[in-house]
Design a protein around this nucleic acid. Structure first.
Lengths: 144, 144
DNA sequence: ATGCACCCTGTACCTCACTACAGAGTCAAG
DNA sequence: CTTGACTCTGTAGTGAGGTACAGGGTGCAT
């Protein structure tokens, strides 16, 4: 009920979407949300469904989409020449993206584990095998 | 042999360490490497072991350490009151850090997998379950 | 009618790790 | 002695995604 009919101020939509007022204006500048109508005073008057859109943005961000990608998703939604498959393609691309980040982190974690393992934790830093390793060894890297 | 005795220009150390000349100057400003002596002309004259230090920085970066953390590691190395255990502590902290990033990514990956799974890839974007989900669902989040 | 919370624009600032000039001077080979 | 590659300082810009003012104006409850 709350979401219908009532024009909202920027503070109201921001609070409802759980983001900051400045962020709402920022998204407007970035073209993620439309410029709303204004009162005579210049105050922005948001239709209530702006809250949905802002929440969409917030959730997509939580899934690791960049603002540019979120813009694409929002565009897909209103483009009648695009299909659900296009959305899925974007989702799959992001999954590949995240997979690759996870592999990077796993490789780093393995290298760190090995370094920490070699260190007995005794003696001066001048004899530390971790520091020695950083001094001498190449860090293996995955293909990127 | 190459690493002993010969003073090097900034271009030479940069090339040997496989980083850019501007980056070397940047690290100097950041305090990661010492200010080297200069020629009359003002040209920097690097002792050859600067290359080792720069490589240390590069490798530590590959392991996910920030420049601030690398500065700490470099400081630990010359501080006689610190021990190998202190280095290991820094390493373990970074491992925890990376672990937490991996958990975040895994959570995101799971959510994306589920979204993509629900999408048959047919029909208009207006009926896309992925977009619908972003519109309606809360994304579960881990404690951070 | 007045006080306070809110809104406006514009600009600057934040983190991180560089990168890119501009405009000047220097080095070394041919 | 000239040419071209290199170096110097200082400043500004990048990208991503905001955040923080300053210096105004507005809305509304009391």
């Amino acid at each position: 009920m709350l979401l219908f009919m009532k024009a909202m101020t920027i503070g109201e939509v921001a609070k409802a979407a759980e983001i900051g007022v400045e962020t709402v204006r920022f998204y407007e500048r970035e073209g993620l949300i439309a410029e709303p109508p204004r009162r005579r005073s210049g105050y922005r008057q948001y239709p209530a469904d702006t809250v949905r859109r802002l929440r969409f943005i917030r959730r997509a961000k939580e899934l690791g989409f960049t603002l540019a990608e979120i813009g694409e998703l929002l565009d897909l939604r209103v483009d009648p020449t695009k299909s659900c498959a296009d959305v899925r393609t974007v989702g799959r691309a992001k999954m590949a993206d995240i997979e690759s980040k996870m592999l990077d982190l796993a490789r780093i974690q393995a290298a760190l584990t090995e370094l920490v393992r070699t260190c007995r934790g005794k003696g001066p830093t001048s004899d530390c095998p971790i520091l020695d390793a950083l001094d001498e060894q190449e860090v293996k890297r995955g293909d990127r």
